[in-house]
Nucleic acid binder design. Structure first.
Lengths: 224, 224
DNA sequence: TCTAGTCTTCTTGTATACAAGTCTTGCAGT
DNA sequence: ACTGCAAGACTTGTATACAAGAAGACTAGA
């Protein structure tokens, strides 16, 4: 478990949630592994309480499996769950980019393009965590512009299933396509072309569907 | 706060969450009111811990507002949030009934019709809680049939905003229409007619949009 | 009278102690 | 050798004690 720095004014609970979430996505807490409130708390230098709160939240979206009075584990990757997560994202994101075509102000487009510019800086970097973060921010902006931030927050939770698979799959070759998708998306929004924007988003999110089959062959121990 | 019976094998935390959620929907914890972990715990005969866990979960979907070290309140009804919630439901439910048209087995249709039959028994009842529960079960079944249960669970959380408004608006006249909608929906699914099913669902969920304006006039103190 | 400061009392946040359930391990009896 | 039971070492669940921050009231001083 990699201990990141604690952000200013971040409560212990928020800190625990952030660290655990990152560790699951980065596979430092690998699928199938057993976890313990006490152990995690000790590693992070906290008490069980905030760690427990974090685990409870993660268990709500089945990214942590709490078996009362027995044990807690990081579930194996359940392809049905990944697909359910992808289905939900696809629906919501497509609807949101359509709204964006009506609602995006010039300043919004500037912010999106600035984000993409930074994405390009990290393109060749092996440390794709940065790129993942920027990607999340990009999609978050699309929701924010359409005044659907709360939905984005909710979706983030179930998307962890998705992100975990993504972090196994990301290669710099793919990254190139992904960033280009973002460019095309912003262009479509600027042209106020909802049909094109929706189609682009659908294609964009579909890039991850193909990966799963190959990954399953490569890391069979992580799959159900 | 109405104390319901504790279900068998229900943990304190689950119990607390259920009671608090019901109390918010039924307006026994009215919008704008201040709440306190200690008070709620005392009323329910529990310690702060499980109550706190429940409040944290509810605060994630902004149906409880926790101001650290200050106070916690039940937020006023925020129409933007209700609309966001309705937007999300509409999108997901419409997509799901389309799937149901392909995926529903005869046994599934039977279970749906049985639920509707019971709905009719409670039609004239003033205690619409029963009807609300049946309605939720009905929609839950639609998700389950399409193998999208996790999405339904997630959606339930943000739907509290919606349900709170619903519980102010439900009248037996409306109930009649709602139950008829359900009948029509199941018919469309049986006919394997996704276009009709989607249209019906959209109309069905739209019934609640109209209410909000009138309610705001009637209960201005509950709105932001 | 007004203002500044402090103290009391509330809140939530965190740590710790204890309860209760589950599984394993080892020992005793057959 | 095998079976059954009991003790212990885990787990998570719950209760309680304490810390820290915020807000208001009250007092002392100008």
């Amino acid at each position: 478990m990699k201990l990141l720095e604690r952000l200013p004014r971040e409560s212990s609970g928020e800190y625990a949630l952030r660290i655990i979430k990152e560790s699951i996505i980065s596979l430092e807490l690998p699928p199938g592994s057993q976890i313990s409130e006490s152990e995690l708390a000790a590693e992070m230098g906290l008490s069980r309480t905030p760690v427990r709160e974090a685990l409870i939240e993660l268990s709500k979206v089945k990214i942590v499996d709490i078996q009362p009075q027995k044990k807690s584990t990081i579930p194996l990757i359940d392809y049905e769950m990944v697909e359910e997560s992808r289905f939900m994202r696809s629906l919501l994101e497509c609807a949101v980019v359509e709204l964006d075509c009506e609602m995006a102000a010039p300043a919004d487009l500037d912010r999106l393009r600035e984000n993409i510019r930074v994405q390009n800086l990290y393109l060749d970097d092996f440390y794709s965590t940065q790129l993942l973060t920027l990607d999340n921010e990009f999609h978050g902006m699309l929701f924010s512009i359409a005044r659907k931030s709360q939905i984005f927050a909710l979706m983030q939770n179930i998307s962890i299933h998705f992100d975990r698979v993504r972090s196994m799959a990301l290669s710099s070759v793919k990254n190139l396509k992904i960033v280009q998708d973002h460019v095309d998306l912003v262009d479509a929004i600027e042209r106020r072309d909802p049909a094109a924007a929706k189609a682009l988003m659908e294609k964009h999110l579909n890039r991850y569907r193909i990966d799963a089959a190959a990954l399953r062959a490569e890391y069979p121990q992580y799959f159900k």
